[in-house]
């Protein structure tokens, strides 16, 4: 019984408490680049979740086989292989999503959520726990990405998932800047500020400073050592 409860906790922690995008600040590049439409955000989230789930399961299964010294190259190889599989599937069955994601689809390989979960979680937990963790993190990433996509698409293009909304066009025209790169940084900053405000009210630590604590490279990073972020575990 206790086992089951803890699996549920592993699953749900990624939704809000340890949301990879808004709390751990990982995977910022695709978040900023893809969040110009809800559809693209959903596609990116689904692709990343699929890769994350498979990589966490495979790495957890191989955790006693992979030597500690070469673990990062081994993880990267596994992740790149899985990304290639997803890339081929998306190209074959969802060409519209492939066009929307562009080079950000192969770039899932270097998404720090996936490598971060591999090194920070999957290599020290069993397969079911790693799968729960991956699903939770994947859903959290997709949710945050869609939220950002919705804000930017509604304000910037006056539509939601491709359907134009009645308010825009007749009275006011959409605010194009939200679709452009500055709008991405701005909306992301405000969303993190909202998440910080909520966690402050609950007496929890704010989002990691620049996400360095969640980064696999933190140990070798000259700035990462100095600014140790608040703990989220």
């Amino acid at each position: 019984m206790t086992e089951r409860v803890s699996y549920l906790r592993e699953l749900t922690k990624g939704f809000l408490r340890e949301n990879p995008t808004l709390r751990l600040v990982l995977g910022t590049c695709p978040t900023l680049a893809i969040s110009i439409s809800v559809t693209g955000a959903l596609g990116m989230g689904a692709a990343a979740t699929a890769v994350l789930l498979c990589s966490n399961v495979v790495i957890s299964a191989l955790r006693s086989v992979i030597p500690d010294k070469v673990r990062i190259p081994a993880y990267i190889t596994i992740i790149a292989g899985l990304v290639t599989v997803v890339q081929l599937l998306v190209k074959a069955f969802l060409p519209a999503i492939d066009a929307a994601l562009g080079i950000y689809l192969p770039l899932i390989t270097v998404n720090c959520i996936i490598l971060g979960r591999a090194d920070g979680y999957a290599n020290s937990h069993n397969i079911p726990a790693a799968a729960c963790d991956a699903l939770g993190m994947g859903v959290g990433f997709t949710g945050a990405l869609c939220l950002m996509g919705a804000v930017r698409e509604v304000l910037g293009a006056g539509s939601f998932a491709g359907h134009s909304l009645p308010f825009w066009g007749t009275t006011v025209s959409p605010i194009l800047i939200f679709l452009l790169p500055p709008g991405g940084f701005f909306v992301y900053g405000l969303l993190i500020a909202v998440a910080n405000r909520i966690s402050q009210k609950k007496g929890k630590p704010t989002a990691e400073e620049a996400g360095c604590a969640g980064c696999v490279c933190a140990a070798s990073c000259p700035d990462g050592k100095k600014n140790k972020g608040g703990d989220t575990a």
Binding site: F185, F186, G189
Partner: peptide, 13 residues
């Protein structure tokens, strides 16, 4: 609430 990362992102914007 804007201290740290949010203000950095808005500056980047």
């Amino acid at each position: 609430a804007l201290r740290g990362l949010p203000s950095t992102l808005i500056a980047a914007s």
